[in-house]
Design a protein around this nucleic acid. Sequence first.
RNA 1: UGCAGGGUGGAGCAGCCCGGCAGCUCGUCAGGCUGAUAACCUGAAGGUCGCGGGUUCGAACCCCGCCCCUGCGUCCA
Length: 933
Amino acid sequence: MVDFKSTLNLPDTPFPMRGDLAKRELGWVRDWQQRGVYKRLRSIARGRPRFVLHDGPPYANGDIHIGHAVNKILKDVIVKSRTLSGFDAPYVPGWDCHGMPIEVQIEKKHGKHLSAEETQRLCRAYAAEQIERQKVDFRRLGVMGDWDNPYLTMAYRNEADEIRALGTLLGKGYVYRGLKPVNWCFDCGSALAEAEVEYEDRKDLAIDVGFPFADRDRIAKAFGLPKLPDKPGFAVIWTTTPWTLPANQALNAHPEFTYHLVDTERGLLILAADLQQSCLARYKLSGTTLAGCTGSALEGIAFCHPFYDRLSPVYLGDYVTLDTGTGIVHSAPAYGVEDFESCRRYGMKDEQILTPVQGDGRFVKSLPLFGGAMIWDANLEIVAEIERRGALFDKAPYVHSYMHCWRHKTPVILRATVQWFAGMDATPGYRGVKPAETLRATALRGIDATRFFPAWGQARLHGMIASRPDWTLSRQRQWGVPMPFFIHKETGELHPDTLELLEAVAKRVEEGGIEAWQRLDARELLGDDAQRYDKIKDTLDVWFDSGSTHFTVLRGSHRGETAFPADLYLEGSDQHRGWFHSSLLVSCMMNGVPPYKALLTHGFVIDMEGRKMSKSRGTGMSPQEINGTLGAEILRLWVASTDYSSELNLSKEILKRVVESYRRIRNTLRFLLANTSDFDHARHAVPLAEMIEIDRYALALTARLQQELEADYERYQFHLVVQKLQTFCSEDLGAFYLDILKDRLYTCRADSHARRSAQTALYHVTHSLVRLLAPILSFTAEELWAVFTGGGDDSVFFHTWHALPALEEPEQLMARWSRLRALRAPARKRIEDLRAEGRVGSSLQAEVDFHLDGADYDLLASLGDDLRFVMLTSAARVHRTTEERVDVAPSELIKCERCWHYREDVGADAARPGLCGRCVANLYGEGEARRHA
RNA sequence: UGCAGGGUGGAGCAGCCCGGCAGCUCGUCAGGCUGAUAACCUGAAGGUCGCGGGUUCGAACCCCGCCCCUGCGUCCA
């Protein structure tokens, strides 16, 4: 038997079947870096319309985790797909460098008693180190960007511009200074942002405390009694924070609730009517109701403080509820927002508010009875004191969820301090300048003008902005951008030249970083005035750092290569409260508009049980680990194939699935390469009009795919991209077109029209696919590009979507072949029956007879003898009949040793034994002609 | 407790806006090919579309209620 294998055009390519990704990706990362691909891409894209995705800066502490990877990969897919769409899409990555977590790290390493300047120096070095580590991991993911020139919030220029931004806000009249209860952490010694607070269960002591009657006549009058019985009396309150009692300055009652005056063994009690029973039960007292009145009747009546010699008047408040307690609430304006606001409403001034708790959690020394005590320790002493004075009615442990510092995990309190604020509704103004509308109104209008992916983000951000309180801009930390103000020692007023002084400081910071402010002697700027002014030590909230990058980066350090406003900000959904929020507020104050045209959010990574990924539970999967085993490409494909708008599920099992689907795509690509390796488009391409019909159909399918994927990319629907790519590779190519094509590619003459037509189609399919894949499977696409285009200094990213040849009537072609495929299916199934009976193996062993009528008959008949190639059978006949059916039978003819078809003319040429007629023609004659398949 | 999102064969997702046989890929099982071969092709099994009502000739899809999951926020003075 002659070996005809060598007479076939079998696939051939150096593109390996196995990606060996974990190892070989490193080579591409290095290659991109060495060749300066990003930089060259910028010059290639220069002049195109710009698309700016502004990177939200990750915090420069710790190695990247899976969430970072998801975020950066999504950004990368967008930047690359926009580039391929013909945009100039720069990507300037950034890092958030200041703030407490880093300061805490330094404290841990070096202790607490460093000078501010030394702390800053160490923090700066630490952050720089963290950034380099993260940068390596980000690059390893295949993320392309300006890694040699990222933005850092700690860059001197950035720090200086941030001070300038502060100056702008002040000058426009948004900033004010005032006393206000803010979340306060004793361990931080600082106010916390809303985002820095989390809730955890905590056990406290809940106590019921009586405030003795002070004005018996007014109480009697309120209850409509001529005179009170001659017994002691109390208004009873319930609290879980005994330590706030030394700062008590009022009692709150609801204006519409009914309160009873109850006669008990321990005297007269005032309680909310609805809570009377439960309270008395708790106090183990029995009582009779003497009279009742509404809360509003109690307004202004003063009661004695339980252990200090002063009075607390009743103020009315709608926020008083009947869920727990007594219906009367004790009010310590320095330690509760509602308390603060109600006391303010009743005319209390800042300086009247009692603030006995210091920043370290201890009572001031001068506080009678409890001076110097830590508030948590003082709780017990306070309860004991109340008990001693006979004012304690009940005490019981109480578990409730309570605010904790996200860093220290220790309880946080509300504490009135002097802070700087950006007013949401109040427009404090600055030297006569006032914004035309409130910040809240500007921001809400900005949200309405922003596009959201997914759309529901809009309602969410809107809701947050609508209800948020004023922004506390100041912090009492070291590692942060200073609020370089000078305050008059007596009046507390800002220096009249503050705007100029800020600019002067900014200039110095630009030269020497925030350390320059630390070093600055006030006399250098103020001269003799210096002794009358305090140099403020506050720093800016770190959210202000990242919230002002649209100014410090887009209009500052990277203004030439980016633009304002950005086309897109993209972050995890938690950033509605974080970066989206702070950026919106800063930009609305500075520019009156948001810094972005659109916002995209993604969910968090969770495991199979629907739990959030966490290292402590051992379910966490690190990107470093995945990169090192499966490859970053698998991580990228997983991210892209997941609907990121809700949670992203990840597990070993899921990654295994992703690896499988990667293999499928990779092998399809390999087949395409292997069958075009001897094809030179310039010399061999068949003109569109002369191409074989099924090849033109393949082009039509590809054109439709490309059109759909371009749209999916545009709408950031990457999971649809992956799904369609997959289906295309499996269904349209693998199971249909390529399967049919093998015969023609392998058996026709290498340079025949029939084969070159197929290769022309494959050439275009490959060009289209490799680019459509590139944003997601960047490593694979680049690898393929090098093989396909013959190496050189090119990159797939230097190109745009492939321009496919324009078919004249693609719809007609699609309709015709869709029907053909539908008619093919039952025949394939009948062949499978034969196979199950053991009567055929390969489908080429079968012959098929279609019995059809009408359009279907015409359709199949129109293919002539080429129908058998579409059917993958040795013969396919069509018969006109009204009784439609498909017959399949094993061939009784002889198998051609070369093409494996079972044909009558095998051996007809005595000189060529074992060969069928067309193989003889292909090998020694003119070659066969194909028109349809 | 408020806001938002989700719940479709073992896994990942379509379908829902605009009601009309529940679909794709992967996996599983069975078979084939041995000229894409650690690949490829064919077929099959597998789903009460979270639950309960309603509207409708007809509901995964529209309406109401509930349950569960996730994120964000908030609260117990």
